[in-house]
């Protein structure tokens, strides 16, 4: 059939098949992910986007435990950041968490469940309306999102649900907070176990002023362990709830439990 066409016709025919270059794309996706365009459209909208090494995403190259892949997102190099969005592109549930840093550094440590090898990305919105995107690929055997939580197999998980443990480490410029909240964080992708996860957390200072706000989604690991760098302070109030309205409420104080008050 093609043989019969005049060469000029063939050229035009092939030319028509060549996709038109997308003018908005500033640089090609460094992770070369098939999902990137869809992620950008659905999560970042029409705002300008740039791939930026100043958004550091630290995670292992290979997930030893696909239910608990440690991640540290650090966008402090950008200066002020108004929103931080973390997503795992090839997870059945893409959105991992969202942060309004406010008084906190734009830095957060946590663990996630991954269903298969996937890019894990963080997008940081600067006040000029520009998204800065960094990320890495984690290799994984998978199954992290469709495996039941350990607590769903444990009869007394409910008695400790919402319980907070944690510590403050005062530094020169900021205070590091690390906390662990007991919660199954079920994804809803396991037959017979509905989605059940902490979806909102606010950290406040002792006077009740908002330090930072977090929105968590299903991929955050069971019994979330969260690391933040907050302003210098000695008391942090934690307030939040899960998608069933169960509250999380605690106050984390500097020092160790054995210390005299």
């Amino acid at each position: 059939m093609i043989k019969l066409m005049a060469p000029g016709m063939l050229f035009i025919f092939l030319y028509c098949l060549t996709p038109v270059a997308h003018t908005e794309e500033v640089s090609p996706d460094p992770l070369d992910s098939v999902m990137w365009k869809e992620m950008r459209r659905s999560l970042l909208g029409d705002a300008p986007v740039v791939f930026d090494d100043q958004v550091r995403v630290l995670l292992p190259g290979d997930a030893e435990d696909s239910m608990n892949v440690p991640v540290l997102v650090d966008a402090t190099a950008l200066g002020k950041v108004t929103r931080l969005l973390v997503f795992a592109e090839l997870n059945p549930i893409h959105k991992v968490l969202e942060m309004e840093p406010r008084q906190s550094k734009p830095l957060i440590g946590f663990r996630i469940k991954v269903q298969q090898a996937t890019p894990v990305r963080a997008a940081a919105l600067t006040p000029d309306g520009q998204w800065h995107v960094g990320g890495h690929i984690v290799e994984a055997a998978g199954g992290g999102c469709t495996a039941p939580s350990l607590s769903s197999d444990n009869e007394d998980w409910a008695s400790r649900m919402g319980e907070v443990s944690g510590r403050l480490w005062p530094g020169d410029q900021s205070t590091r907070l690390r906390m662990r909240i007991m919660h199954p964080m079920d994804t809803g992708l396991v037959s017979g176990i509905p989605a059940f996860f902490i979806n909102r957390l606010e950290l406040q200072d002792n006077a009740g002023d908002l330090l930072t706000r977090l929105f968590l989604y299903e991929p955050v690991s069971e019994n979330p362990v969260i690391t933040l760098d907050l302003p210098k302070l000695n008391v942090v109030k934690v307030q939040g709830e899960d998608n069933n309205g169960n509250p999380v409420q605690a106050r984390i104080l500097a020092g160790l439990s054995g210390d005299k008050k």
Partner: peptide
């Protein structure tokens, strides 16, 4: 080493965080 962090760190960390001062409100 990175595999061992995955195997061993969560328990060690939970113990360290458990030594903090927290009031459940």
């Amino acid at each position: 080493f990175q595999r061992s962090v995955a195997h061993l760190f969560p328990d060690i960390e939970a113990k360290a965080l458990g030594r903090g001062r927290v009031e459940q409100d």
